[in-house]
Amino acid sequence: MERVLSARESVFLRFKRGDEVAFKFYFDKYYNNIVGFCVQFLHDEDKAKSVAQEAFIKLWLNREKVSKKTGIPAFLYTAAKSKCLNQIRHNKVVSKYKDFKLQEKEQQLNQEVLQALNFDSMNLTELKETIDKAIQDLPERCREVFIKRRIENKKNREIAEELGVSVKAVEANMTRAIKELNIKLAHYLSVFL
């Protein structure tokens, strides 16, 4: 099976040869994910974007060292991980909590989470699919609310306005979404990672 060049492999080879359009292909594919990843640690969309952009620039400059196509997300996440760790260590992250102890605790936990991530051995695609599927399976309203919160980073009030429902209803849907995902994913994730 390995000897045959599929469309994806041919994009990868073009990328290796320095083809800008192929690079753009990977940018489109992974950029939002890398930004999303960084936001979880940096709590700031602009900072997250700039870290993600640096990761892509690093990828382009080191494209010869990437040996297979699955190495691309691994490279990007690894670069983002070390940038995020640096920012946390140098106290550049603004916390969302008022309580100083809570801030410190979160930074410390975040460092532990980042250090526990090893991108070489992980099947990112499979993981992403499992979670995407669980989100897809949520009841419609739940899913809408969840996606608006999680991916679009919207506030409950904004979501309520957009959907023309009460803030309470948004909260209820969010709680339900979290509960359902919890049931579906908790076991899978605990054995998987």
């Binding site: 950029y31 939002n32 994910n33 930004v35 999303g36 990843f37 936001v39 979880q40 640690f41 969309e45 997250a48 974007k49 996440y77 989470v113 991530l117 992980m122 990112l124 993981l127 992403k128 979670i131 995407d132 999680r150 991916i151 679009e152 980073n153 994913l185 994730l189 998987f192 990672l193």
Partner: peptide, 10 residues
């Protein structure tokens, strides 16, 4: 798991 599947809509 959460951070690896996070995305943004930028």
């Amino acid at each position: 798991a959460w951070v690896l599947t996070a995305s943004s809509k930028s």
